[in-house]
């Protein structure tokens, strides 16, 4: 009889082990989404939450509509992970914050390459800074220059123009300075009004913001959108490596990178929905001037300690691998 029970236990044990739910560590993630828990970023965070169960973590998601609050809650250890824009994430991990460097990633294919490269297990050191680690980079859409007068579509003509600039966005302030334009201080909540009312000649925004904020109004009398991405907005998940199970970051980055196409879908859709008449193409002859200005800004910001030189070099490699004829590929300035 005892043997029978023993045999039963031996037979059933693997089955029972399979049926038992995997033990998960409970963690909290603060999620910045300007639209809160009903927004697209929070929606992505919910997908991430389900995926993370398989890597041994159950996240409780906390929506934050104020990015500063989300960041300070993470600093105060009220959340174990935080999802922020690259603008704010840069203060934790400079390398991944450098992804948004001005003019460094010209298209989504390049961005995908970059995100995949940073998700490689070989890139662990690159995405870690002290106690902090970036455990996911999600595309938020290319940022474009919006003009009230489409004729101001060259670097030279932008000189002297007023550009609505986010006051906490240092790289853009430097860009405005390099171009010779003047800055009209703005916040996320005010820049659309400033542009539409004509208090600025230009502003910058991802395509997803254009229709909901009715930015086409500001371009309705001969304005346009310069079809040349200024930068790539990304959302990044930051955590303290020590607070997560071993190897969590690698699994997380790999999964977030696998969601790239999904992440970029809304941005592409918003870009496609903008009437063709608003797009302003840059003449091929005018492109080098743009690229050179962008590079000057990147180098200046690297010297100021805002950008990480390693990621600038990685992005240059991606650009040059896609197009070897670029002027910058022959030198070694970045």
């Amino acid at each position: 009889m005892n043997r029978l029970i023993l045999a039963l236990i031996v037979t059933l044990a693997p089955t029972l082990a399979l049926a038992a739910p995997t033990a998960q560590a409970n963690k909290t993630m603060c999620v910045f989404d300007p639209s809160g828990a009903h927004g697209d970023i929070f929606k992505f965070a919910k997908s991430y939450q389900a995926a993370a169960l398989e890597w041994g973590v159950r996240f409780d998601l906390k929506a934050q509509t104020n990015e500063t609050v989300a960041k300070s809650d993470f600093l105060a250890k009220q959340c174990d992970a935080v999802l922020l824009t690259s603008l704010r994430a840069r203060s934790f991990v400079k390398s991944t914050g450098t992804i948004e460097a001005i003019g460094a990633v010209p298209d989504y294919a390049s961005l995908k390459k970059l995100v995949r490269a940073l998700a490689s297990p070989k890139a662990v050191k690159l995405v870690t800074q002290g106690a902090y680690e970036t455990i996911g980079v999600l595309p938020g859409g290319a940022v474009y220059l919006l003009l009230r007068d489409r004729k101001a579509n060259t670097m030279a003509k932008l000189s002297g123009k007023r550009i609505a600039t986010l006051i906490h966005d240092n790289p853009s302030r430097v860009m405005v300075d390099v171009v010779g334009a003047s800055m009209v201080p703005a916040e996320v909540g005010t820049f659309a009004g400033i542009f539409n009312n004509g208090r600025a000649d230009a502003c910058y925004a991802p395509a997803t913001a254009i229709k909901p904020l009715e930015l086409l109004k500001g371009m309705s009398h001969g304005g346009g959108i310069v079809r040349f991405p200024l930068a790539q907005l990304t959302f990044q998940i930051i955590t303290r490596t020590a607070d997560m199970p071993a190897g969590f970051g690698i699994k997380s980055r790999s999964w977030v990178a696998s969601q790239f196409n999904e992440g970029v879908k809304m941005a592409k859709k918003a870009e496609a929905a903008i009437p063709a008449k608003y797009w302003v193409s840059i003449e091929p002859a005018a492109k080098p001037a743009y690229e050179e200005k962008f590079r000057q800004v990147r180098v200046r910001l690297r010297k100021k300690g805002e950008y990480d030189g390693r990621v600038l070099r990685l992005m240059k490699r991606i650009r040059c691998r896609a197009d070897k004829t670029r002027a910058e590929c022959a030198d070694n300035l970045e």
Binding site: P21, Q24, K46, S47, Q49, A50, A51, L53, E54, R58
Partner: peptide, 18 residues
């Protein structure tokens, strides 16, 4: 259903419900 599955740690049920 998605939230219950998250609570119960059932990744595939949660994803399917989403």
């Amino acid at each position: 259903t998605n939230l219950r599955a998250i609570k119960a740690g059932q990744a595939s049920v949660a994803k399917d419900a989403a």
